[in-house]
Design a protein around this nucleic acid. Structure first.
Lengths: 156, 156
DNA sequence: TGGTAATATTTTAAGTTTGAAATTTTAGAC
DNA sequence: GTCTAAAATTTCAAACTTAAAATATTACCA
């Protein structure tokens, strides 16, 4: 570490800690709202959100990759959603190993309700940011994202 | 929701998802590095980091509040660090209920080593951000933080 | 066709985290 | 002084997550 680059690396560290604090703070608020107001959890919401984005359904393994959680974890969450009639498993024609998870009509309705509230929570939490702020922030994050996903590939 | 504010709330939602993805990506990289290169975990690093910031030690409950994890969780992590000689519990004079956790010399040395690597990882991950980027990002996050900590107080 | 490797998922065991109960000690009211 | 409420910590049970083993099926090559 050179004397010149030192302040920059300290500044980066401080910003990372602030970014983490912000992200954790928002996530905690969402978890609280989901638990207290809708009697559900973030992992369940995440799965429903992924399934809503792919109406034709997602293979269990694709769901796991998409959400970056383990296969076993997805199995458990989809099990619960299925018990409650929110999701269903559909056999994949021509491959008896695979199953596709998809939302039921009930699940779709429930998710749309949750998603609408979720959008409002975020809207309130990011109240202070203008369109211009959002664009700048988005660009900045994009650059960081590029770096960290590059790292990810190198580690794998 | 009015027609005019609708695009703004969608933009906020997209930015939140990107912020979350960025934060999770960096955190995952840090966890990987701690595990693969230093045989430790993020929660342990967080506790050591908090104790390093307060050389005189922190009460278990203060540690819990500071890190925003449960009391029981802190007990377990400090137990392990103590077993390994990284931390120690010190009785608080005048209050037999309370104990202060602090780093041992060994723990301090170990943390300084970890922290130095950690700073380098962050430095690399935030490579693409100039001092100006960092300042703008910091200001933006500050505004969001103000909002979410306000929410937090309202919920509690 | 047979056999081996690869793929998809579930099951299992171990480790984390939490919230609440239990334990011990302190503070304050009367 | 005694009693009760509050405070600090630990213990405990339940929920969640992961990595790896187990199971079932498919793909491919020889």
């Amino acid at each position: 570490m050179t004397a010149v680059s030192e302040p920059l690396s300290k500044a980066r560290l401080r910003v990372w800690l602030k970014l983490l604090k912000t992200s954790n703070g928002i996530e905690a608020e969402i978890r609280r709202n989901l638990r207290d107001r809708h009697n559900t959890t973030l992992p369940r919401f995440d799965v429903m959100s992924a399934l809503a984005r792919f109406p034709e359904g997602l293979k269990m393994s694709d769901l796991s990759t998409y959400l970056k959680v383990s296969n076993g974890n997805v199995t458990g969450i989809v099990d619960k959603l299925t018990e409650e009639g929110m999701a269903q498993r559909v056999a994949v024609p021509g491959d008896k190993r695979a199953q596709v998870a998809r939302l039921t009509e009930k699940g779709k309705t429930e998710f749309e309700n949750l998603a609408s509230h979720h959008e409002n929570w975020i809207d309130t939490l990011l109240d202070g940011l203008s369109l211009e702020d959002l664009e700048t922030l988005s660009d900045t994050l994009e650059r960081v994202l590029a770096q960290s996903t590059e790292k990810e590939r190198a580690d794998a």
